[in-house]
């Protein structure tokens, strides 16, 4: 593959990503329909749920560590967050737990 082809491929992927990010602003930026305003209010909640599933998509409950490191670490993040509501504590605690589990235990 030539350098030019790789560079063009990068440009194409960049253009597609920018288009997808900008499209809603271009389409609805000036006059935003009520339906889009409604979606804008409720989508952040739905999207975060989708993103968590997306992050965990490679977990296989039937093989390897059976998703135990992910389940335990996510539960720890939730508990720490309910306890202190400190994002940094929850994330550092959960990540340290996960690293320990995948590097040492499993």
């Amino acid at each position: 593959m030539t350098d030019l082809h790789v560079f063009l491929m990068i440009l194409v992927c960049g253009a597609v990503t920018l288009l997808l990010r900008a499209l809603p602003f271009l389409a609805f930026g000036r006059r935003t329909p009520g339906y889009i305003l409604y979606l804008g209010r409720v989508l952040p909640y739905a999207t975060m749920g989708m993103l968590v599933v997306y992050c965990l998509r490679n977990v296989s409950p039937l093989e390897g560590a059976h998703g135990v490191p992910e389940a335990v670490s996510c539960a720890l993040v939730v508990l720490l967050h309910l306890w202190r509501r400190s994002a940094l504590l929850s994330i550092v605690g959960g990540t340290a737990c996960y690293m320990f589990l995948v590097q040492v235990v499993f």
Binding site: L43, Y45, V52, C55, V78, H81, T95
Partner: peptide, 29 residues
């Protein structure tokens, strides 16, 4: 995993702060 943990902690904030939990449940399910 820091990124997963970030998203999970934001979900908890949203879960506690939301007027309705239906949007979060819809996205997750």
């Amino acid at each position: 995993f820091a990124l997963t943990a970030l998203f999970v902690s934001i979900c908890v904030d949203q879960w506690l702060g939301a007027k309705s939990r239906l949007p979060a449940l819809t996205g997750f399910a």
